[in-house]
Design a protein around this nucleic acid. Structure first.
Length: 215
DNA sequence: CTCCCGATAT
DNA sequence: ATATCAGGAG
């Protein structure tokens, strides 16, 4: 019976991460729900820092569905090419903008289910938007959350959806959005993919992987 | 499962 | 040189 962490360990993890990263927040730059939606679509397989570099000029040219549509495909692709996967991302952004104009009066929906029907918007992107734009508790499982949750021993599921469910079951709803950002900060700054810095990690004492290394 | 994909870190 | 980066669609 693979026992997970007990209640006191879960509380310790949340508190220790808050103390280590009191400023944990969404690192994508945005001013409106639509800007966040576009920035999050662009963030696939790409660092936030480079997304912000691109959106700074992109949103100056167009930051509404109508203005994005007016740009057209080749112009939009040109602006986002440096982010990679640019053809898919441009098509998704245009198709999503078209639907927002036609069906939602240009307003980004607050419903995860409605968001996920938009082209290029999956589970992770929908969670990021409702959490950071509308203050709805959610845990978006990206590459960092998936990796860190497995290493610590907070999750064992093989898909992002399973990991999201495991995390939601172990932490109270009011902690979901904060926990999501805390795990991302941990994954970016300490528990990196190539070389995790366990000596600097605030939750090493309860981490499954860190313990495995010590034994 | 594969494909999309440029920039950066190791 | 190669792994990785706030994934999603077919």
């Amino acid at each position: 019976m693979n026992r997970k962490l007990d209640a006191s360990q879960l509380e310790y993890i949340y508190t220790a991460l808050q103390n280590k990263f009191p400023d944990a927040h969404c690192e994508l730059n945005f001013r409106t729900p639509f800007e966040l939606l576009i920035a999050t679509i662009l963030s696939a397989q790409c660092t936030d820092e480079r997304v912000n570099q691109v959106t700074a000029s992109l949103f100056e040219a167009a930051n509404t569905p109508e203005d994005i549509l007016a740009l057209g495909l080749s112009s939009l692709e040109g602006k986002i090419r440096s982010l990679g996967l640019f053809h898919n991302k441009a098509k998704s952004i245009l198709a999503t903008s078209q639907i927002l104009v036609e069906k939602y009066s240009g307003i980004v929906p607050e419903s995860i289910d409605l968001l996920r029907k938009l082209p290029g918007v999956g589970r992770k992107t929908a969670n990021v938007v409702v959490s950071n734009a509308y203050g709805i508790p959610a845990i978006a499982v990206d590459t960092h959350v998936f990796r860190v949750a497995h290493r610590i021993g907070l999750a064992e599921g093989s898909t992002a959806e399973k990991v999201e469910k495991e995390l939601m079951e172990q932490f109270p709803r009011e902690q979901w959005s904060d926990l999501h950002h805390l795990l991302i900060f941990l994954g970016r700054r300490i528990c990196t993919a190539r070389k995790p810095n366990c000596p600097a990690c605030p939750v090493a004492s309860v981490c499954k992987m860190a313990k495995g290394h010590e034994l």
